[in-house]
Design a protein around this nucleic acid. Structure first.
Lengths: 195, 195
DNA sequence: TATTTCACATACGAAACGTATGTGAAATAT
DNA sequence: ATATTTCACATACGTTTCGTATGTGAAATA
């Protein structure tokens, strides 16, 4: 039947999977397309046919990781007590996820540098979109000061992810992580309306 | 007299100056070392002798811009009414400075991606160090909640710089900038001790 | 069964980086 | 003042890698 589409999908997944490893371990610039494709028994021909160019492959990888992150953050946020606690929990989750070298190297460092501003990624940044939705909800409930939702979302994610970069680069991450989370909660609470 | 050292210094400055332009306009990866050096009447020989490699040149450029930023932020902060207002003013200054394509592309995007975590740059990140000093002062004055100074500094700068990336990438920056600043002030106030 | 499609392989050309070596003017020594 | 050494930079080379242009064979269609 549709054997063409089937193997094509397989090959796309193989390439994305190999790219996740290569980009995470070596960084975008140092990752060789020849090597990466050969690892899964293909050539650069398959790559350029499926993703256009090296950037296109990165975009696909970033999209996949970003969606996984957003999904996980949503789950964690939903388990919290109320929307506000949910937002804090999401932020905390992002900090922890950003400790993963793959997330850090691919999504936080190379992603913005190669693909440009996250909010304009071909795939849309799911993490950012999710946070913004939560903020909007809290604004309607008048839990937050009347700030711009997109601005708030950017600041929250920016603070969280930057804190994570710091934690990961520190000498003893486990010791530093709670400090980052505490400071994050403090700053985020600045958005709360004065009740 | 010391003609050797003199012309050597001149050449270093020529290269750094040319690199600022090239890195800002084309990005680190796309900037050609052949082209860049030829623009100032030199060859790659001069570059590799002075800076070791392409990354070394970027490090020198980042260092220069970073120091200019820290100097300017310090001036602005010093002109404010009190240390707390100074910190807010500094943050606001960073947001505005990050609208400069040179700052954005070289220091915020390519810098971390190529050189790694800012706090461990060969040059030390002057901006970060400055903010942390201010935070420490405010902690001694018990103006802030007892948070880790480094964590606070990272969160503040992270939020500010990420907000700036958003503003710059937006369709009408002038309209969006005040929203970013307002949200920033709100979040930063979360660090204040509950008086 | 013949024909067409197309997903991928193969082949090619064009940079660009880093190194190894050369060179000539400045600094030093005689 | 002349000879020697230093060294900042130029030149030349090899390697790697990307993107494109073209070829091909199996699957889909006629």
């Amino acid at each position: 039947m549709a054997k063409r589409l089937e193997t094509m999908e397989e090959n796309r997944n193989k390439l994305i999977s190999a790219a996740r490893k290569a980009f995470a371990e070596k960084g975008f610039a140092a990752a060789s397309m020849d090597e990466l494709t050969a690892d899964v028994g293909l050539t650069r021909g398959a790559l350029y046919h499926n993703f256009g160019d090296k950037r296109g492959l990165l975009a696909a990888v970033v999209d996949q990781i970003d969606n996984e992150m957003a999904l996980r953050a949503k789950e964690i946020g939903a388990g919290a007590d109320g929307d506000w606690q949910g937002l804090l929990a999401e932020g905390e989750a992002y900090i922890k996820m950003a400790l993963d070298p793959e997330v850090q190297r691919v999504v936080l460092l190379d992603g913005p540098a190669v693909l440009g501003d996250p909010s304009k990624w071909p795939s849309q940044n799911s993490c950012l979109a999710g946070t913004q939705r939560t903020v909007s909800t809290l604004l309607e409930q008048e839990v937050l000061k009347p700030v711009d939702p997109e601005a708030a979302a950017r600041l929250i994610s920016g603070a969280a992810l930057n804190a994570a970069l710091w934690v990961a680069a520190s000498d003893n991450p486990t010791d530093v992580l709670p400090k980052a989370i505490e400071a994050f909660r403090a700053m985020a609470s600045g958005l709360l309306a004065k009740t």
